[in-house]
Amino acid sequence: MPDRRIAVVTDSTSSLTAEEAAEHGIVVIPLQVIIGATSYDEGVGGASPQMVAEALKNFTPVSTSKPTPTGMLEAYQRLVDEGYDEIVAVHISGEMSGTFDSARVAARDAPVPVHVVDTRQVGPAVGYAAIAAAEAIAAGASGEDAVELARSWAEASTTLFYVDTLEYLRRGGRVGSAAAFIGGALAVKPLLRIEDGSIVSFEKVRTAGKALGRLEDKAVEAAGDRRVHVVVAHLSSPDRAHQLASKISARVDLAAPIRNAELGAVLGAHVGPGMVAVCVSPADRADL
Rank of each mutant, 00 (worst) to 15 (best):
151 R>E: 12
230 V>A: 07
236 S>K: 14
71 G>V: 07
188 V>E: 07
65 S>Y: 06
192 L>G: 02
50 Q>S: 11
112 V>P: 05
238 P>H: 11
145 D>E: 15
114 V>A: 07
50 Q>D: 13
25 G>E: 06
249 S>A: 15
171 R>P: 03
155 E>C: 03
160 L>M: 11
103 A>I: 09
230 V>T: 10
100 F>E: 14
182 I>C: 02
43 G>Y: 05
42 E>P: 01
188 V>F: 10
89 A>M: 10
186 L>W: 10
98 G>C: 14
197 G>R: 04
272 G>L: 07
67 P>M: 05
223 A>C: 09
152 S>H: 05
52 V>K: 00
285 R>A: 15
171 R>K: 15
267 L>P: 01
97 S>K: 13
266 V>W: 12
246 S>M: 10
188 V>D: 03
33 V>N: 14
47 A>F: 11
165 T>E: 07
202 F>T: 03
258 I>M: 12
283 A>E: 05
22 A>H: 01
61 P>K: 01
222 A>S: 08
178 A>F: 14
119 T>N: 11
277 A>H: 00
136 A>V: 01
46 G>M: 07
241 A>E: 01
44 V>H: 12
127 G>F: 05
74 E>A: 14
76 Y>R: 08
58 N>P: 12
288 L>P: 00
268 G>S: 08
62 V>H: 01
138 A>N: 07
49 P>W: 02
3 D>M: 09
234 H>L: 03
48 S>V: 10
37 A>F: 10
216 E>Y: 04
27 V>K: 09
159 T>P: 04
3 D>Q: 11
275 M>Q: 06
211 A>T: 04
163 V>M: 08
184 G>K: 14
18 A>V: 09
267 L>W: 02
190 P>W: 02
188 V>M: 12
103 A>N: 12
63 S>H: 07
149 L>N: 09
211 A>I: 02
168 Y>G: 00
209 G>M: 09
93 S>L: 09
171 R>F: 10
9 V>N: 06
190 P>H: 06
261 A>F: 01
136 A>H: 03
202 F>Y: 13
177 S>W: 11
53 A>G: 10
140 G>S: 01
206 R>C: 03
239 D>G: 03
169 L>K: 04
239 D>F: 01
129 A>Q: 11
122 V>R: 08
13 T>A: 06
67 P>H: 05
281 S>L: 02
277 A>Q: 00
233 A>T: 04
281 S>T: 11
31 L>V: 14
2 P>N: 14
96 M>N: 12
8 V>L: 05
87 I>V: 14
282 P>D: 04
258 I>L: 13
267 L>M: 08
204 K>H: 10
116 V>L: 07
15 S>D: 15
261 A>W: 00
29 I>E: 08
198 S>C: 08
239 D>V: 13
248 I>D: 06
177 S>T: 15
4 R>N: 03
38 T>C: 13
208 A>H: 02
58 N>E: 04
221 E>R: 10
277 A>R: 00
151 R>I: 14
40 Y>M: 12
90 V>N: 12
189 K>P: 02
275 M>F: 01
158 T>I: 06
4 R>E: 03
212 L>Y: 02
282 P>N: 02
9 V>H: 12
